[in-house]
Design a protein around this nucleic acid. Structure first.
Lengths: 358, 358
DNA sequence: TTTATCTACGCAATCGTTCCCGGTAACGAT
DNA sequence: ATCGTTACCGGGAACGATTGCGTAGATAAA
């Protein structure tokens, strides 16, 4: 408490928040900064008495090493960047929870950026995060993203990147996904076994890996059960259902068909809920008029009217696994050559919205 | 492309991600780092030709100033910390979106930390963020928080802090809230006018400002309409409904009463949805057996069964406003003395779950 | 006594950037 | 010829921490 800053004499000045540094300790104890530093790191070169003095005093004044200075010296910031489309989306906020749980354990902090499904914002975010000296990046690309130069640039220079959920083929990195093919296959098969014959697919952006994988599973299930795969039964929403209008338009198209679909497989959270909103608005009964099953990680699909059959993804685990792989790569001494592709199992929940046809 | 790093000769070594610095530019152009720095900042001391050369070359090699070095020198990191209980909560993720929108505009990035409604984790997070040299803090306290030493410490040293939603009285800072009193008053009055007489309140932690304010509005509405305010009609959930069990216990208590409540006011997102889950589980009809209205920012309360009457808060605007106040304080030359208390209006949505009694 | 060894510490460079001092031309004014 | 001014630019110290190297002093070995 004997510390008197200039501000103590000029209380009107902005009282800047000044942290105590290693120099303050050195000055007070009549030592050099090197000695203090070494004492704090418990170096063998420092005598026990000196160590004791330093430790006690730095404890007393509550010394905390300045992470910025450390980052500058060590060329690492112990922070990782996350790029997702939206955090206000159960699936992604659960993923972020998983990411955080691992990151904080290992002493990393996370910086989250949202693309809002815009390619331009994704590029901006990548540049921004890169300039903030993050040590690695966890990416789920936007639904507009086709060109990957912004990420390839970094990746080619050895920058650690892990893709999750919405991955890309062109880059050799760790990738963590769920078995989207199986998820869609199971959901479609469930519809078929419940008696539905004209099953339409409400899909996300055509550019996304998850869209392709899910449509693949959908198609295979149809074919395995001798149902025709008809492209006119497939509608894409570029923004993944974020805009109600795109879902509305897609469904309008489907309901215009000569043989209207009797069931719909929606392949994203917002697609699913906006689909339900559309049906409610038009007073279309689910599942009587049309059945609905969708990919969703909302934790109240059981409370919806009707309760919703869904394919749920292990989002939390996905975040954890991605982060483990990323940090492992960041901390690896030698460049990582063998990139892993981890596939997690989805889970099918059967509820009212896909009840059997009598 | 004439740049050859040591790693180019030893491809097996970890190819570290080396950014170009002001020194590289100086060396290449035969200038000093001071000159380059000044040229980049468009100083009057530098000749137009030199500036042009520097600008062109740094453009060519894609120079980006190192923010870590800047932080060290300027003693600010251009990042702000956020502490919330959960990001997997519509209200808070919408707030974060609002925060982000302003922060990124003004060149700040945000670091999000979650308390998960635990006091201990909140303290840890504050310490962690403070040690990461953030320039300011946006805080919504956990439902367990009573002791505020962890925040007072910082605040007394002039560290900018803005409270939002769950504020505290003991500290003089900017505060941004919604009119919780009015929100609860309107909701309760709506129930009364719909014919309900025994209105119970399912509230969050007693420590929270929002709980007190909302119960205040609830009480006033009852009294204004000559209904008795009975404490046994009030149940608190320490974790704000995060755990289904606490909601279950609270509702069990309410349904044990001699005169069972015919309506419930739930004062948080998770309280509301878990309340609905409870009713569904016990096959209690809403609103026939008991009506339900709750505070919620979910964007699918209209799709629930029954569709839910809610008090909605302007979360996005709240995040924006809080961030503006915080950044204003961070960038203010003189210490801020006049702290503002901004109160935003809540919005009442009337739906099926509170339909009139016939 | 001389030399080698060890202990315990300080000096100074480093990370990337800014900025306070200088310094050196060129030029016009006296 | 000398001085003052202006325009431009470089040297070097900071910011906080780590670390290779040097070394004074003490002790031990010769």
């Amino acid at each position: 408490m004997s510390f008197l800053s200039p501000e103590a004499f000029y209380p009107d000045l902005k009282m800047k928040f000044e942290a105590v540094t290693i120099k303050d300790i050195a000055r007070e104890l009549g030592l050099s900064t090197s000695t203090v530093s070494r004492a704090l790191r418990d170096s063998y070169e420092i005598s026990p008495e000196t160590k004791k003095k330093v430790l006690e005093y730095s404890e007393k004044i509550n010394y905390r090493p300045n992470p910025i200075a450390l980052s500058l010296k060590e060329k690492r910031s112990r922070s990782i960047g996350i790029i997702v489309c939206e955090i206000a989306n159960s699936f992604f906020s659960q993923i972020i929870n998983g990411i955080e749980s691992i990151a904080y354990d290992k002493g990393y902090n996370v910086i989250i950026a949202q693309s809002h499904e815009s390619y331009d914002r994704e590029v901006l975010n990548v540049q921004y995060l890169a300039s903030r000296s993050i040590d690695g990046l966890l990416v789920s690309v936007s639904s507009e993203t086709q060109d990957l130069e912004h990420l390839k640039n970094l990746h080619e220079r050895g920058f650690p990147i892990v893709f999750f959920d919405r991955i890309v083929d062109e880059m050799q990195t760790h990738k963590v996904i769920v078995d989207n093919f199986k998820g869609a296959y199971d959901a479609t098969q469930h519809l078929i076994k419940s008696g539905y014959k004209n099953i339409a697919a409400l899909a996300g952006s055509e550019y996304l890996s998850i869209t392709k994988e899910r449509l693949g599973g959908y198609r295979k299930a149809l074919e395995d059960h001798n149902l025709v795969y008809d492209e006119s039964y497939i509608q894409h929403c570029l923004h993944g259902g974020m805009l109600y209008e795109e879902v509305e338009n897609a469904l309008n198209e489907l309901l215009k068909l000569k043989t209207k679909p009797d069931a719909i497989l929606a392949s994203a959270d917002k697609l699913t809920t906006n689909c339900l909103r559309y049906f409610k608005k038009l007073k279309i009964k689910v599942p009587d008029d049309v059945a609905l099953i969708g990919f969703s990680n909302l934790d109240l699909t059981d409370l919806l009217s009707p309760s919703l059959s869904v394919v749920r993804q292990p989002a939390y685990e996905m975040g954890q696994l991605s982060t483990e792989l990323l940090i492992q790569q960041i901390e690896s001494k030698r460049p990582v050559k063998d990139f892993e592709r981890r596939i997690l199992p989805p889970q099918l929940f059967v509820r009212e919205s896909t009840e059997k046809i009598n």
